Computed example of a mutant assay.
Amino acid sequence: MTLTGLFVPLITPFDRAGALAQEALESLAHQVLQAGARGVVALGTTAEPSALTPEEREAVLTVLARVCRERDAPLIVGANTKEALRELADRPEVVAALALVPPFVRPGEEGVLAHFADLAATSPVPLIVYDVPERTGQRLSATALRRLAAVPGVIATKHAPGGIAADTVEFLAQPQGISVLGGDDVFIAPLLAMGAHGGILATAHVATEAFAALITAWHTGDLATARALGGPLSDLSAALLAEPNPSVIKAVLHAQGRIPAPDVRLPLINASPAAALDHIVKLKGFSVK
């Protein structure tokens, strides 16, 4: 299976009383798919999954599975343990699980490889390895990424190393054997230019159509469009990620009238007033509307 195009890791909207806003979540999913996203991600890190109750996580998954079934769109689900993966067995809409490189413990590359081989051996769905060393404390070399690509059941990586490093260049310089989905929103244009298959981009809640067009432009060789979109979308992403994700994104979605409240849950706090101002997304022609 090759995963290409734009996938939006959806936020979890709350209502003014702090409860899960299921109708707003459903509407967001329809909006981004209508605007050109290939699929959506449920319960990724942008969704604040650790702050949700088991009942809320189940409700999120049910809502997004229904939307993806109705629109014949692929659903990716954040799942990092064997138990969480087993719960996806009866969800035909789920095409893959987004599994984080083990955070904090820094098991080394051999440990990471053994971990994913063990998960993949029993998972009912293929795995996408989420490589984000800024959050996990574990950096993977190009060699380790290629070895992960050879693990049966691993079909993609969400590649978010924190910029364009030598290992990224080396990894993308030759066929990878799996899909590479950029996860560093600010750097998605150069990742696509080097051969990434698409992106899992939180900031594509805003200007979804433009992000989808950027990916299409690089894949079709429309360099004029790709270059025209790349810089402005990088600026937009930097603004939307100026404070801990997804606080600014939620503030903007609320300003757009797309979710009932801008609230995140602890340990996150809401975006500062300056970051939440509408003008922060009025960058290079992308405006709140």
Rank of each mutant, 00 (worst) to 15 (best):
L3V: 09
L3A: 11
L6V: 07
L6A: 14
V8P: 02
P13A: 14
F14E: 02
G18C: 08
G18A: 06
Q31T: 01
V32W: 01
V41H: 04
A42Y: 09
A42F: 11
G44W: 06
A47S: 15
E48A: 13
P49I: 06
S50R: 12
T53W: 12
P54N: 06
E58V: 00
E58L: 02
A59S: 14
T62M: 00
E70A: 14
E70D: 10
T81Y: 09
E83H: 14
E93I: 06
E93D: 10
P103T: 15
E109L: 10
V112L: 07
D118R: 08
P124M: 11
P126N: 09
L127A: 04
I128L: 09
V129S: 04
Y130D: 06
Y130T: 06
Y130F: 15
D131S: 15
E134F: 14
R135S: 14
A142V: 04
L145N: 04
L148P: 03
K158S: 12
G163S: 14
I164N: 02
A166N: 05
D167M: 00
G177I: 10
I178F: 14
S179Q: 02
I188F: 12
A189L: 00
L191K: 08
M194R: 01
I200G: 11
I200N: 08
V206A: 14
T208R: 06
E209A: 15
F211Q: 02
A212Q: 03
I215G: 10
T225S: 05
G230C: 10
P232C: 07
A239Q: 14
N245F: 05
S247R: 04
I249S: 07
R258L: 08
P260Q: 13
P262D: 04
I269N: 11
P273W: 08
K282G: 14
K289V: 01
